[in-house]
Write a protein that binds this DNA or RNA. Structure first.
Length: 108
DNA sequence: GTCCTGACGAGTA
DNA sequence: GTACTCGCCAGGA
């Protein structure tokens, strides 16, 4: 595919797809992994495009605070929370994930 | 072809 | 402690 075209987005998908089950990562974390800690915004935008629904676990990507995006979820905030919860992700609240326990790290 | 907005995050006032 | 601004890249109007 046009890797030389959307170099940035491809990198996002590549990293997000590597997030294991039961783990979550923040937009800023993904951005940092790709070498652009300031581009967290574009990470979210890349997932918004979501060219590969079902392959890219966008539900495992949350805010730096561990909060999930209500209203911006693919099917609904409840669905996102249920999917994460079913994978073993601990929730502090209905909209907050336990980042300190389920935060994904490279090489984990 | 150009301008503006858009799933964020961290720093500063 | 809270509010606002800047940075980044790509896509849509």
């Amino acid at each position: 595919m046009s890797i030389s075209h959307t170099h940035f987005f491809e990198r996002v998908y590549e990293i997000v797809e590597q997030i294991p089950k039961g783990r979550v990562a923040s937009y800023g974390q993904v951005a940092t992994l790709m070498g652009a800690p300031r581009c967290a915004r574009q990470v979210g935008f890349a997932l918004h495009s979501n060219p590969r629904p079902g392959i890219i676990p966008c539900h495992r990507v949350v805010f730096a605070d561990g909060r999930i995006c209500e209203g911006f979820a693919f099917g609904g905030p409840e669905v996102q929370r249920s999917m994460l919860e079913a994978e073993g992700v601990v929730f502090l609240d209905e909209t907050h994930v336990d980042m300190k326990t389920c935060r994904w790290e490279v090489g984990l």
